[in-house]
Amino acid sequence: MSKFVVRRVAQMILVLFIVSVIIFMGVRAIPGSPFEREKPLQPQVIERLKEKYNLDAPVHIQYLDYMGDILIPRLESGDTAATFAEGDYLINIQLPIGEHGLYFRWMNFGPSYRGLGSRTVNEIFRDFLPTSIQLGLASVSVAVAIGVPLGIIAALRRNTIVDYSAMGVAIFGVSVPAIVLGPILRYVFGVELGWFPVVWSAEGFPYYARFILPATALGFSSSALIARLTRASMLQVLDEDYMDTARAKGLHERRVILVHAMRNSLIPVVTTLGPLLAFLLTGTFVVETIFGIPGLGRYFVTSFTNRDYPVIMGVFMLLALFIVVANMVVDFTYAWLDPRIRYS
């Protein structure tokens, strides 16, 4: 098992390295520059800006510098100038050494070019990732809470009106994207009924209420996928010999379904849940835009339109990290779901 873990972590680092090189080189290869404005800057001004952001160096040097800023920790004495670097580094630990203290700083993902340095990628993570993670978890909960029961019921009542209705709901979920469902939900439950806040920071609602409509809009379409997967896999499991064995042992039907059938039928569901979770946790452009949610998702789009290289790198590396970690967690979950799967 430990050998397996080491191998998976090594693979993970390799994948992240390859992804980082591709994105780093790729964004610099697409036309347009971060300093291309509708009202063009003086060539001299652009040169100074490129110099300031190290964009005049050869691209492999830029890459090494960038990676160095992230990976190599720094020690700084705690005089006044240095305290304003808080936002630059993700990890800032004050060590009780020296008169003003010594700062251990690690992981600098660089400045955002938009607004010319007033924001850093770390500040963007710090401000927006928590919201996106909360919304992502809420959405996945909605997706699972709707999808899994729907799939199980459909499988148990196969080819009956129950099955058809459940799958009808699933097909509706797949065909109506969040960009349609979101505004409808907001208008009906927000504007007309007034049950939920229409905008993110609307007064008079408890904090969690703001997540309900976006999470429903986002979770509903994913629930359809989960429902269909659960149904298919459940049908397969129900035909297995061990189901007859379980029944032959005289187990109650509810236990047969909930423990023996469901646990095994969840394996393909968990497989898709990993990447889904990674995408939902890092935010969703469409839903964040519709509901005006200050999340990370919009940065996946706006960073490209602004050619904001460090932000592009930051958000996509974060997504890549979430995906590889989620996949690894999924692999370990298999072992728990199906005792026949063992890693060595």
Partner: peptide, 12 residues
Amino acid sequence: TAQLDAYEAGDL
């Protein structure tokens, strides 16, 4: 579109 909905809901 969110502006208009918020306006009609009295938030804007």
